[in-house]
Amino acid sequence: MFPFERREIILDASRRSKRVTTDELLQLTGSSIATLRRDINYLLDKGNLKKFRGGVFYVEKPELKGNFLYKHRMKLFYREKEAIGIAAQEFIKDGDVLVLLYGTTTIHVARQIDPNKNITLITNGIDIVDELRHKPNIKVIVLGGIIDYSNNCIEGPTVPKMLCEFNPSKVILGAGGITGEKGITNYEFLGSTTVSEIVKLVKERIVVADHSKFGRNVLTNVMPLSDVSVFITDSGIQEKYIGLFKDYSIDYRIADIKSPSRVP
C-alpha cells in the first residue's frame, strides 16, 4: 500500500468516527506501528489530525471543504474507483448512446469500456476524451462550453443546450457528497449547475461514487436521491447508507475492492 493510500484511510476513518484508536488504525491499514506513527506524524504536521491518548481525532480544515486539486483527487481511493469502473460496465451495452460526465471516478468507467463495443459516448470530460482515443469503435461527442482546466472538464450553459440535440438513454455521473437530506451534491457551482441541467434531460441516471462520499454535503445541489436510478459504490460503504438505497427504491451495485491494481 502506498503512503498516500494509508494516510487517506487514516483520514477517512477519523473523519467518519471523529475519534479513532491506534489499534483500529493498525487493523485498517495493515501497517506496522512504526509506519503508522510516521503517517500520523505526517498528518499531524499538516494539521489534519490531533492526538489523544491512544489515538487521533480529525480536524476539519477550511481548505479541505472546497475542491481538491484534480491530480490529487485522482489518487484518492484509487482502487475503489477502479473497482467501481469495472462494475459500471454492466450498464454499458453495445449500441448505447450515453452521457459520461467528467470526474475522477467516471474516468475509470471510460478506462474499462470494452474497445470492441459500438457505442456513442457524449461527454464534457477532457481526460475522458483522451482516455478513449485508442478505442475507435466508440464514437465520442464532446459537449462545448467553457474549459475548466482545474477539473479537466467543459462546463457552462451551452453544455446542456448542446445535449438537447441528442437522445441519450442514460447518464453516468460522479458525486462530491451524498446524503438523504440533500441527495447528490458537488463542489463547483458552475460545474454542478451544468450537471443538474444535464441529468434532467436523461431518463436513466447512474451515480458512481466511492464510500467516502456518503454522509456529507458539499457546496451545491445536483439532484435528490429520488431521481437516481442506480448507485455503484464500493465495499467500504457503511450499512446505514445501503439503507438509503432501499428507502428510495434505488437499484445498486457494490464493487469488490480486493482485486483492482494500485496506482500505476
Rank of each mutant, 00 (worst) to 15 (best):
D251T: 14
Y241K: 08
C164N: 12
H134I: 13
I250N: 07
V222D: 05
G177N: 09
D45S: 08
D23W: 03
K240G: 11
L190V: 13
K71Q: 14
R37I: 06
T105A: 11
G176R: 11
G66R: 10
G55L: 02
A110C: 10
K65Q: 14
F91R: 13
M223D: 09
D130Y: 12
A110V: 03
P3F: 02
P3I: 00
D96A: 12
L100T: 01
R53C: 07
Q238G: 05
S249Q: 15
A209I: 10
T29D: 01
T185M: 00
H211G: 07
K61E: 12
I206L: 08
F57S: 02
V222S: 10
K161Y: 13
Y241I: 06
Y78P: 06
I184Q: 00
G54Y: 02
I33T: 04
T158E: 14
M74I: 13
V207E: 07
F68W: 12
V228A: 09
N186H: 14
S235N: 15
L190Y: 05
D39L: 03
R53L: 11
K81M: 05
I257M: 04
E80I: 03
G125I: 01
P62D: 06
R262I: 06
E181P: 02
V195G: 01
I154F: 03
R133M: 11
D251E: 15
S249T: 12
I206N: 08
R133I: 13
F68V: 00
Y78R: 05
E90Y: 14
K46C: 01
A255R: 07
A255P: 06
I172W: 13
L225T: 08
E63K: 08
I113P: 01
P168H: 03
Y42C: 04
D45P: 02
V218H: 08
L225R: 11
G191C: 01
S196G: 06
T233K: 07
I237T: 05
I154C: 06
L76T: 06
I33S: 07
S212A: 04
G180R: 12
G95C: 12
E188D: 15
I86W: 08
K135T: 04
M74Q: 14
D234H: 01
L69T: 10
G174C: 07
L244G: 09
Y78V: 02
M162G: 06
